[in-house]
Structure formats: C-alpha cells, structure tokens
Computed example of a mutant assay.
Amino acid sequence: MNLKDKVVIITGAGSGIGAAAAKLLGERNATVVVSDINLSNAEKVAAEIIKNGGIASAIKTDVTKFEEVEALIAQTVSKYDRVDVIVNNAGIGGKHQLKTAEHTHDDWHNVIAVNQTGVFYCMQAALKQMMKQGHGTIVNVASLAGLKASGNNLSYSASKFAVVGMTKSAALEYGSKNIRINAVCPGYTHSALLDQLLTVRPDMGDLLKRLIPMKRFGEANEIAEGICFLASDNSKFMTGQTLTLDGGTSL
C-alpha cells in the first residue's frame, strides 16, 4: 500500500484497534501522530513505532473538547507541515447494557460526546486544514452497530449510525475538493469494548460467536488492515463508503 511519507493522525491510538493501526501505518512508512486521552499509552505506542524504524510522535487529546482537537491539528502541521490522513478512532461504550427505557443519561451523554461529537470535531478541524492544503483523507471508525440494530446499546448504536451518516454527508460535500472520507465498520473484535461486555456477561462470548459465520471474533490488526487500505492511495477512487469487517455477521 502506498503510505510512504503520509502524515497520519490517529485518535484513540493508545490501545486496541487504534494502536494496531498506528503500528501498521508506521511499518508501512507513514509518519504517525499517536493521539489519545491517555498520554502514557500514546507515548508507548509512538516509542514502539520509532523502535521499529518508523517516525512517530504522541499528543494528548480529549476529542470531546474542540480546542484540544484544534491544537492536535495545529501541532501536527507545525511539526510535519500538513495532515494527509486523520483516522477518527477514539470511542467508548456505555457502562451498562440496558434497554432504551432504562438507558442511563450518563451513558447517553458520555458515549455521544466521544463517539459522535468527537468525530464531528475531528472532521471539522481536519477538513479546514485539508482545504488549505488542497488534499486529504479521513477514515472514521464506525461499527457494525452503525449498520444494523444492536439491542441494549442505544447510545453506542446511535453514535455509530451517526458516524456512518457523517461520513457519507461529508464525502458528498468534499469529493470535488480532493478529500476522501470513508469508514470502517468492525464487527465483534477483541478490544477493550468487547472485554467490557464479556466482563458483565461472561456467557455472551459463546452466544456472539454463534452469530458470526466465521465463528470467531476479529483481531485488532485485521481491522487495522482495512484502515490502512482506506488511508492509502490504493483506495483513491473510493469515498463515502463503509468497509465492513465482521466475519460475515451482517449476513
């Protein structure tokens, strides 16, 4: 994949899918800005990329605060002159698995703030820079829960449907500006979010695997491959699309 010399920001890159994508992009010669609300985790990922011969730096960012998102873009441009790609991966799940009538307001506000508003803030700030430089690529990390119903998970589902909608709307707006915007939609993947679910419902693991035609959960590096494809010039005629990586679950 053609990623050499691309300057790529990844939010939520201190762990899970974000960390896997950051490391894979580093292996493929991109310059990686590892962004996370947990700076220590971000620094560890950046250090590993550098140790393996790549170029990386870490920046602490809370994507729910627009001023911090603006600072992330500004610091990246100051250090590397441009932002070729931003991968909007930062996301959380709710603390409770409850039906809509019992869904907590705290879960709603917290999940929407990170997963939906955070992606909007990152897209908006990145688009302003990409318009100035005349090119750019945005990869949003949505979810299978943004394509089909997901019970006991209203705020997460709502936020991921929103990410898919924002991806398509913005792609329509900026397709003529040499800016591509796509999304990956992972299914059940080994991650902190899945671990959280299985901690609450240990029996859920076997149940979920029965719903997956491939009979296993995805791995973070498998989702990272999809992110790299959308970030690269290999997908240069692709915009406004969702790449579903779910082991066939949506079937």
Score class of each variant (00 low, 15 high):
56 A>Q: 00
56 A>M: 00
56 A>H: 00
57 S>W: 01
57 S>K: 03
57 S>I: 08
58 A>F: 02
59 I>Q: 11
59 I>E: 11
59 I>G: 02
59 I>K: 04
60 K>I: 03
60 K>H: 07
60 K>T: 02
60 K>N: 05
60 K>D: 01
62 D>H: 02
62 D>G: 02
62 D>F: 03
63 V>M: 03
63 V>Q: 01
63 V>C: 07
63 V>Y: 11
63 V>F: 07
63 V>T: 08
64 T>Y: 09
64 T>C: 10
64 T>V: 08
65 K>T: 04
65 K>D: 07
65 K>Q: 08
66 F>W: 04
66 F>A: 04
66 F>I: 13
66 F>K: 09
66 F>P: 01
67 E>F: 05
67 E>S: 00
67 E>R: 03
67 E>L: 10
67 E>N: 08
68 E>R: 09
68 E>W: 02
68 E>F: 04
68 E>S: 05
69 V>R: 11
69 V>F: 13
70 E>K: 07
70 E>I: 14
70 E>C: 12
71 A>P: 09
71 A>E: 13
71 A>I: 06
71 A>N: 15
73 I>C: 03
73 I>R: 06
73 I>S: 06
73 I>N: 04
73 I>M: 14
74 A>E: 15
74 A>F: 11
74 A>R: 14
75 Q>I: 00
75 Q>Y: 10
75 Q>R: 02
75 Q>N: 04
76 T>Q: 03
76 T>I: 06
76 T>W: 01
76 T>F: 01
77 V>H: 13
77 V>P: 13
78 S>C: 02
78 S>K: 15
78 S>I: 09
78 S>E: 15
78 S>F: 11
79 K>L: 12
79 K>A: 15
79 K>M: 13
80 Y>K: 05
80 Y>E: 00
80 Y>N: 05
80 Y>Q: 00
80 Y>T: 02
81 D>V: 13
81 D>W: 15
81 D>E: 15
82 R>C: 12
84 D>E: 10
84 D>R: 07
84 D>K: 05
85 V>S: 04
86 I>D: 01
86 I>T: 04
86 I>Q: 01
87 V>L: 09
87 V>H: 06
87 V>N: 07
87 V>R: 06
87 V>G: 07
88 N>A: 08
88 N>P: 08
88 N>C: 11
88 N>R: 03
89 N>M: 07
89 N>C: 09
89 N>V: 03
90 A>K: 04
90 A>L: 06
90 A>M: 03
90 A>C: 07
91 G>M: 03
91 G>E: 06
91 G>P: 02
91 G>Y: 14
92 I>M: 11
92 I>N: 02
92 I>F: 08
93 G>I: 06
94 G>D: 06
94 G>N: 10
94 G>A: 14
94 G>P: 09
94 G>I: 04
95 K>T: 12
95 K>L: 15
95 K>I: 09
95 K>E: 09
95 K>A: 14
96 H>Y: 14
96 H>M: 15
96 H>Q: 11
96 H>A: 13
96 H>S: 15
98 L>P: 12
99 K>R: 11
99 K>I: 13
99 K>Y: 09
99 K>C: 11
99 K>L: 14
100 T>K: 10
100 T>Q: 11
101 A>S: 12
101 A>T: 13
103 H>N: 05
103 H>V: 03
103 H>C: 04
103 H>E: 06
